[in-house]
Amino acid sequence: MDVPALLLAMPAFLGAVLLIAATPGPAVALVVRRAALRGSAAAVPTVLGLEAGLFVWALLAGAGVAAAVAASQAGFLVLRAVGAAVLLWLGGRALWRALRAGPVEEPGAAAGPVRRRWGGAFAEGLLVQLANPKLAVFMIAFYPQFVPAGSSPLVTAALLGLLQVTVETALYLGLAAGVGRAGSWFRRPRVRRGLDATSGAVLVGLGVRVAAASR
């Protein structure tokens, strides 16, 4: 591997990663909503799930699988349909909670099923990333630009993926901590309903965009 060439490309890579991570999307919506309603600690598994999904796509991009999926009309159509369904389901669930206006759960409540809740939050984040067709297209267009000539695409993609995961994890956990500090305000019934309605509308809108988007 041409390490000096890879290091020279890092400033551009990190700048692009920061811009991508700061762009509002399903990941940001999930992290904000979970941190606002259940506290910053409850957003940790969501962030880990999102970043696990990102790293999987990085490996698939390095192995050429992501390119094959994006190039296959049927494969991309299936991925797009699954991605849209996941986002519409998450958005619809949030909108239903806003309409139902049930009781607000405080952070730390129901200590018994904590492991199950963490598992569900991790799986939610993972599923959102794995079912994101735009992420597959992004990976095959973005990562190859930073693979030095003569280097292994898989190894380089794994290293770049780890770097992106590290940066995004720090940013999302910082976002969760900031939102979590205002948790008591977010958990007021009227504010919580507004947050559910807003995040639900955002996720449904993103789902519609994914369903209608082309490559």
Rank of each mutant, 00 (worst) to 15 (best):
P11C: 07
P11T: 05
F13W: 13
L14Q: 03
G15H: 02
G15R: 01
A16G: 14
V17E: 09
L19S: 06
L19F: 12
I20Q: 12
I20M: 15
P24K: 10
G25H: 05
P26A: 13
V28H: 13
A29C: 11
A29D: 05
A29W: 00
L30V: 06
V31T: 01
R34I: 10
R34T: 15
A35C: 09
A35T: 06
A35N: 09
A36T: 05
L37Y: 00
L37M: 06
R38E: 14
S40H: 01
S40A: 11
A41G: 12
A43F: 09
P45F: 11
T46E: 07
T46P: 04
V47L: 02
L48G: 02
L48M: 10
L48H: 08
E51Y: 12
E51P: 08
A52W: 05
G53I: 01
G53T: 00
V56A: 13
W57F: 14
A58R: 07
L59V: 00
L60P: 05
L60K: 01
A61S: 10
G64A: 06
G64C: 04
V65T: 03
A68N: 09
A70S: 14
A70I: 15
S72Q: 01
S72W: 04
S72L: 02
Q73N: 12
A74T: 13
A74S: 11
G75K: 09
G75D: 13
G75R: 08
F76T: 11
V78A: 14
L79Q: 09
L79D: 03
R80A: 07
R80Q: 14
A81K: 04
A81E: 10
V82H: 03
V82K: 01
A84F: 00
A84N: 04
A85M: 02
A85R: 00
V86Y: 02
L87N: 03
L88K: 07
W89E: 07
L90F: 15
A94F: 15
L95C: 10
W96I: 02
W96Y: 14
R97W: 13
A98K: 05
R100K: 06
R100N: 02
A101V: 02
P103A: 14
V104P: 12
E105N: 00
E106Q: 15
E106W: 12
E106P: 13
P107Y: 07
A111V: 10
G112F: 08
G112H: 03
P113V: 01
V114W: 13
V114N: 14
V114C: 13
R115L: 14
R117T: 00
W118F: 14
G119K: 09
G119S: 11
G119D: 01
A121R: 04
A121N: 10
F122K: 02
F122R: 01
A123C: 12
A123I: 02
A123T: 08
A123N: 04
G125S: 01
G125P: 06
V128I: 09
L130A: 01
K134T: 14
L135F: 04
A136S: 14
V137P: 02
M139V: 14
I140G: 06
